[in-house]
Structure formats: C-alpha cells, structure tokens
Nucleic acid binder design. Structure first.
Length: 161
DNA sequence: CTTCCAGCCTTTT
DNA sequence: AAAAGGCTGGAAG
C-alpha cells in the first residue's frame, strides 16, 4: 500500500503490486504535486495517520478517525461520510446506503468508485443486495480479503449465506 | 435464469 | 443542453 497526503489530511491510499507501480499511479493522479518519498523526516501528522491506519487494519483500533483531503462533489461527501459510519467488521448494501441518503443505489456505487482513499473511506464494506460482492476498484479479491479479515478480527460469526 | 428499465450522479459531447 | 454509463435493484419475461 501507499499513502499520500497534504497538511490537511490523507489524499490517496492505494493498493498495488509493487513500489514502482504505486508511485507511478500516484504521479498519474497528481501530476503537479511535488512527491517527496518520506523515508526519514516523516511529517508528524502523516506518520500518525498511517500508524492509525495500520493499527486499525489489525483490529487494534476500533474507530479510524483521520482527516482526508480529497476533492469531492457534495454528494460524494455525503456518501463517504455515511460509509465511515459503518462499524469495523460489518457490511452494508448499496440499497441501504441509498435509502439512508434518499438517493439511488447506482449513484452510490458511482460515488464509491470515485473514492481514492482506501480503508479510510471503507468502500469495501458495501456489497450488493443480492449477495454478490459488487465491484472494487482495486480488485474483488482484495475486497473479499478485507471483509473477511475484518469480520474475523471483530470476532463475529461468519454466517455467510 | 435472463432481460429490461427506473433511478441519480458524473463525465463526455 | 443532451446523452451515456456506472462497484445497483427490483420487476418482468
């Protein structure tokens, strides 16, 4: 994984197969940004955010509360905010989200697809109403892995129909 | 099981 | 301004 951010929050958290691939992706998304590989003089906040992220993934941190700094339409903001209210280890359907927002399921899917901040905005916790996984920007295997891992870490029974 | 279309937001023309 | 299409869903064939 790679994490990038500004002084205001994380702006990009992505999955990839290699360091090169990840860096290339980041460069493509922010062609004008000055990318500094932060090996040593870690900006304090960025360090805290990524720390939280890691511990959260391990299930050691119940709620992830890090700021994000991503350009978004008002609608996307509402969807993402709602996604962040899904507890660790649980999943919702696109329809549920849509109902809560008074919108349509498909629009929700579109908003999720636009999310660039993996895990922080848990678009992997949204599945289809018919039991299917739906899609995932970084690959369905990754989505499945995240959900399984979270479910296991949260100690819930794995009742999967 | 396989269309079909309503639905809402974004992106492209 | 108009049209297409997406990480859907529910109804119809």
């Amino acid at each position: 994984m790679i994490a990038g951010g500004t002084e205001r929050g994380l702006s990009s958290v992505q999955f990839g197969e290699s360091r090169e691939e990840l860096l290339a992706n980041l460069r493509r998304e922010y062609p004008q940004a000055i990318l500094e590989p932060v090996e040593k003089p870690y900006p304090k906040q960025l360090h805290e955010w990524t720390e939280s992220l890691c511990r959260y993934l391990e299930g050691a941190l119940p709620v992830l509360d890090v700021p994000v700094d991503v350009p978004a339409t008002p609608f996307q903001m509402r969807v993402w905010k709602h996604l962040q209210s899904i507890p660790y280890g649980e999943v919702r359907t696109y329809a549920e989200i849509a109902a809560a927002l008074g919108s349509a399921a498909r629009a929700v899917g579109h908003a999720c697809a636009a999310n660039r901040v993996a895990v922080v905005i848990p678009c992997h916790r949204v599945v289809r109403g018919d039991g299917g996984l739906g899609g995932y920007r970084w690959g369905l295997d990754r989505k499945r892995a995240l959900i399984d891992r979270e479910r296991a870490a949260s100690g819930q029974a794995q009742v999967l129909v």
